[in-house]
Design a binder for these strands. Structure first.
Lengths: 146, 146
DNA sequence: AAAATATACTTGCATGAACAAGTATATTAA
DNA sequence: TTAATATACTTGTTCATGCAAGTATATTTT
């Protein structure tokens, strides 16, 4: 237990929280400016489907470290935007497989470039070495808390 | 612009996002386990009031880097929990001053200790030097994006 | 003083998150 | 084979966020 007086501004939680929020907001803004009607969270799902199309909701939830309820509603919204579709599993009727639509596939490169652009904006002036070190520390924090 | 293939798992945004979420969740959990009915975001407001009681909503929004609408509703929820109160400004009737209730003051130490505990949990196994470096990088990211 | 603008705050809407409870279908155990 | 349990997904509730629009009050301009 630390004995320092607590100061919100200087705390790890606060800095993480704000850096994360600013980065999500910036990506959303970059998407919007380029007429991609997709949120950061939806992009997390799409990104997994670009790696491999036709995954179950459960698997998408696991690899994105979120609960099924959350993924279920993200998929609802992606469907509403015409970017993915639900298909029943051939033998197991509990399972939905999620597939990209043509439109979903079409926007892949655009989204990826904006994601890369956002990372570049966020890491401006930070050395490759510092960035690597930070990513490793973030991994350690995630490991500690999961 | 980077030329690497985009990989969500390895990206700064993803790691920030998840580290931040895990940390908020852990703090919420720590609050809950100790019967403090307060969210991380509400704690951000309370923490400012512990530094100085009787601030305007606008000022709370500025120092916490969020919009007034968000603060307005956080205050609503803090009032619902009996932790703060709105008082009209003496001369300027547009302004609310936010004050801690007795109950709000009473829980200060408990909340602070749990915030410190959460930071300790998150930074387990990370050297003081690495942690300092990471906080500085997070500041740089915030500076880049704000 | 009246009109225009700025400030402080609130409300509405869409999105997302955590948690708990519910539904349908599969699998396992008795 | 029936009952119990596990799995995959959905829905309801409360809280939070971003954005835009709305209300009330102050201040500035004309």
């Amino acid at each position: 237990m630390s004995f320092n007086k607590y100061q919100l501004d200087e705390s790890l939680g606060y800095k993480l929280f704000h850096a994360s929020r600013l980065m999500s907001n910036r990506l959303n803004q970059n998407f919007k400016e380029n007429d991609f009607n997709v949120t950061y969270e939806q992009w997390q799902i799409l990104s997994r489907l670009y790696e491999q199309d036709g995954q179950t909701q459960n698997h998408l939830a696991q690899i994105n470290e979120r609960d099924q309820a959350s993924v279920s509603r993200l998929i609802d919204n992606l469907i509403k935007r015409g970017l993915v579709m639900r298909r029943p599993h051939q033998t197991d009727r509990r399972i939905n497989l999620i597939y990209l639509t043509e439109e979903g596939k079409r926007i892949q490169l655009g989204l990826e470039n904006l994601a890369l652009k956002t990372i570049d904006e966020a890491s401006f002036g930070i050395s490759k070495q510092d960035l690597e070190r930070t990513l490793a520390i973030l991994d350690q924090i995630r490991e500690n808390l999961k």
